Amino acid sequence: MILGWRNFVHFFTSPGSSTSLLLNPFSHSQVYAIEASDIAVQASEVVKANNLSDKVIVIHERVEKVSIQEKVDVIISEWMGYMLLYESMLSSVIFARDNWLKQGGLILPSHATLYMAPITHSERYSDSIDFWRDVYGIDMSVMLPLAKQCAFEEPSIETISAENVLTWPFVVKFVDCYTVTARELESITTKYNLTSMLRAPLHGFAFWFDAEFNGPSTFPSNNNLLSGSSTSDLYSNVYNNQRRQKAKSDQVLMLSTAPEDEPTHWQQTILYLYEPIEVIQDQTIEGSITLSQSRENPRFLNIHLEYSSGGRSFIKESIMR
């Protein structure tokens, strides 16, 4: 995490990257680069090698244990995890914001939105499951229950395309880094009601996120999104508005991990169903999703998914460890 003050001061997490160095040659900033892992040792050597020790101070410690005596102008942190919140460092950003950020200061990224959508992925399902129906002429279909459990018990990190997505995306959680609290991240629950755009087997649900780099702004809460309407048209309007904002690069800078955009190392997080559901065009897919921090480790994510379609209802529970 980078913290900054004096003429322009930064607070930066994960100085193992070169960001803390890139900030300095163009300003008279003071930079505090805070990193809990041992990469902080190498980061310190890089700072020395570039004669920036007077401007970039690398602190090898957890953010929550650091003592900073002045307020800072900017907080920069790459806190996003898979599915946005898995192994997330957002709680450290919140701690730094509440303790050190000046009024009117900047947080980057400033906002993030977690989306989900039902998907179809016959090739992936077949590769994992149908193989056992005929293994070089041997019927091993008795292995199917175990194969499904092994393949789909936990979320999968992989890249899909826009063609795999069955409905308009749904906003699971909007995060305003200027106002979000640690408590509201402990458990997130929201209901969804979506409409399939084509006839295909429903194999699971995909999750991805956008991260925006901007100043403080307002965005409707999930409750406001749901009030008055829960149709796919509402979610498509929200999603399309954000797509249009992204296209206007002079107004907003956005990192997208969506299936229709260039792949990133975050890819998409897929929660596969044990049994596919055949859906037709305009068929409703509804239910609820709960994401909660694990008591075992707050950076782990418990997932409770309820889904119904075509008169059938199911529950899928999983843990991202």
Results as ranks from 00 to 15, higher is better:
V9G: 15
F12K: 13
P15C: 13
S20R: 03
P25G: 07
F26A: 11
S37N: 12
V47E: 08
N50V: 05
N51S: 14
S53Q: 15
S53N: 10
K55H: 15
I57T: 15
R62A: 10
I68Q: 09
Q69S: 15
D73E: 13
V74M: 08
S77M: 07
E78P: 06
W79N: 06
Y82V: 06
M83T: 09
Y86I: 08
S91K: 09
S91M: 04
S92G: 03
S92C: 05
V93L: 12
D98Y: 08
H121M: 07
Y125I: 05
Y125Q: 07
R133F: 12
I138K: 08
V142P: 01
V142K: 12
M143E: 11
A147I: 08
A147F: 07
C150W: 10
A151T: 13
F152P: 12
S156E: 15
S156Q: 14
A162K: 10
E163F: 02
N164S: 14
N164A: 13
V165G: 03
T167W: 01
V172T: 10
V175E: 06
D176R: 05
Y178P: 04
A182K: 13
L185H: 06
S187W: 05
Y192H: 03
S196A: 15
S196T: 15
L198H: 07
F209G: 02
N214L: 12
N214K: 11
N224L: 11
S227M: 11
S229Q: 03
D233M: 06
N237E: 09
V238F: 09
Q242Y: 03
R243Y: 03
R244I: 09
Q245V: 03
D250G: 05
L253R: 08
M254D: 01
L255V: 01
L255R: 02
T257A: 10
E260L: 02
E262H: 09
L271T: 02
V279R: 01
V279N: 00
I285W: 02
G287T: 03
S292Y: 07
N297V: 04
P298R: 14
R299P: 00
Y307T: 05
